[in-house]
């Protein structure tokens, strides 16, 4: 893919960073979504993901175009508006060895796709569900989405009189075990959250505020770059440590760090900026989100984490061989089985 392979520029599976590229983006210059795609490329490389073990999923909208712009060696599916969850559920049960990376938007998730979103989370389908949230419909030139703040004024849409839907709260209420929020301008935090999310056993929801440079980037808009930079309130600094690396927790002073063990054994380290914040407290997380909304702040970081609930594939009792790889010997009972049953019915 245009990059010479040397011992120093390949990862554990022998791929260069360029191997994780996709097609050139067609989104607007400066779009927050592009920065998220860049972090996915970086994360894929750093985690040594095998591209064929990943499927990239999306619905419809600006955000949903972006799976074309990363991991070009992975299969992908740009589905229907709001329907990424059902397509992903089918694909990830058909082949439960695959991991899904889904990219959706606030319209795709919080309006047309709200039902499917909540049911995907409820089923705990193993995928990273990214919402590139800008509070506005870009492709149709600037209507409010359901996540737009009450009172927000936009050039074309006028004033928004309705309260916003908080995607993180919806995810927590639907039983999600990994709920995080970030800001597309905060590359490091996005990257660390993506890494942790990829280790989660079920659905990991990342609500990433990703300003729309064309339709919602007035400095006073809570989903603009300027506002995001000024009002972002990280709950904690995050460091992701893959399972294969040595973990030397002694480095960190006790009291400043909290380690959360992910399902596959890797650790996520949170530097607590709020000493009393506990990401395993579901009620606390909801309360904190509500509080932040009232203060017109957005908190970032891992807001809620609970690895206990089994994924849908586990609930379905799937064996080692993916359903999609089964052949006639497993899929069709023997002729004697039919003959025996017919005998029972006609005897």
């Amino acid at each position: 893919m245009g990059q010479t392979r040397t011992r120093s520029n390949v990862n554990l599976v022998g791929l260069t960073k360029a191997d994780y590229n996709g097609n050139p983006t067609t989104l607007c210059q400066g779009c927050g979504h592009n920065s998220i795609a860049s972090q996915l490329i970086q994360v894929g490389f750093e985690l040594s993901l095998r591209p064929h073990e990943i499927i990239k999923m999306s619905g419809i909208g600006c955000s949903s175009k972006s799976p074309a712009y990363f991991l070009g060696q992975s299969h992908g599916f740009n589905s229907l508006h709001g329907r990424m969850p059902s397509i992903s559920t089918g694909a990830l049960i058909a082949n439960h060895h695959l991991r899904g990376i889904g990219v959706s938007g606030d319209g795709d998730t919080a309006s047309i796709g709200m039902g499917q979103f909540k049911h995907l989370v409820r089923r705990n389908v193993r995928m990273v569900y990214i919402v590139e949230n800008n509070g506005v419909y870009g492709l149709t030139k600037g209507q409010f989405s359901a996540t737009a703040e009450e009172g927000l004024k936009l050039k074309y849409a006028g004033k928004n009189d309705l309260p916003p839907i908080d995607i993180c709260m919806e995810a927590i209420l639907a039983g999600c075990g990994f709920v995080a929020r970030s800001f597309s301008g905060d590359a490091k935090q996005v990257r660390e959250l993506l890494k942790a999310a990829l280790s989660h056993r079920g659905t990991a929801v990342l609500d990433i505020i990703s300003p729309c440079v064309a339709f919602n980037n007035e400095d006073w808009s809570p989903k603009s770059y300027a506002y995001g930079k000024q009002n972002e309130l990280p709950l904690h600094e995050i460091g992701f440590v893959p399972k294969r690396d040595e973990i030397e927790i002694e480095e960190y002073a006790p009291g400043e760090m909290r380690q959360v063990e992910l399902h596959d054994g890797s650790l996520i380290q949170l530097r607590k900026l709020e000493s009393d914040y506990d990401p395993t407290d579901q009620m606390g997380a909801l309360h904190r989100l509500q509080w932040a909304e009232q203060k017109q702040e957005f908190i970032t970081g891992l807001i809620y984490y609970n690895p206990d609930r089994p994924s849908l594939a586990e609930v379905c009792n799937l064996g080692e061989t993916p359903l999609a790889q089964m052949q006639e010997d497993k899929l069709r009972p023997r002729p004697e089985a039919l003959a025996q049953y017919m005998q029972e019915l006609s005897g």
């Binding site: 499927i55 589905s79 329907r83 059902s86 058909a94 499917q116």
Partner: peptide
């Protein structure tokens, strides 16, 4: 609607859905 989405997702991945 979701049922149809699921069987298409699974069909894409290779099952008889």
């Amino acid at each position: 609607l979701a049922a149809m989405g699921m069987i298409l997702g699974a069909g894409w991945a290779g099952t008889r859905s």
